[in-house]
């Protein structure tokens, strides 16, 4: 992965491009993430309900693809979505994917 690509994935975003965690249509939890690192950390803080809501709507993939512009992570999340995890198992799987990916890109930076 090029340094430029890594820097783009790890950059701090403007507020309007942050990821906003909801639990259902129109119900915003008050949690948001303005960077990949913050997004990864928030996965452990927000409710499982919020994670299920966003994963199965494809919101995580969309944000990672369009805002972070990270196609590799996008396909990993897509793959997770197809495994139909729920509850804490989903939270653990999602967090593992994100931390592994984060460590991988950080190590090459």
């Amino acid at each position: 992965m090029k340094e430029e690509t890594t820097a783009r994935i790890l950059r701090t975003l403007p507020r309007e491009k942050a990821f906003y965690f909801f639990t259902s249509i129109g119900n915003y939890t008050g949690e948001s993430a303005i960077s990949f690192k913050e997004f990864m950390n928030k996965i452990n803080e927000v409710s499982v309900k919020s994670l299920e809501f966003h994963l199965y709507r494809g919101d995580f993939e969309k944000w990672i693809a369009e805002t972070l512009e990270d196609p590799e992570l996008t396909s990993e999340i897509e793959s997770l979505r197809n495994q139909n995890y729920s509850g804490t198992a989903l939270k653990e799987q999602l967090y593992n994917i994100l931390t592994k990916h984060y460590e991988k890109i950080i190590s090459k930076f």
């Binding site: 507020r15 309007e16 942050a18 906003y20 909801f22 249509i25 129109g26 119900n27 915003y28 939890t29 008050g30 948001s32």
Partner: peptide
């Protein structure tokens, strides 16, 4: 519902000072 959610997620949640939102359809 989708356009309602898009509006709230893209135009309301990002407003400075918004702490959380509850929506009833």
């Amino acid at each position: 519902q989708e356009s309602l959610h898009t509006f709230i997620a893209n135009s309301v949640a990002p407003l400075p000072g918004v702490l959380r939102i509850r929506t009833s359809i």
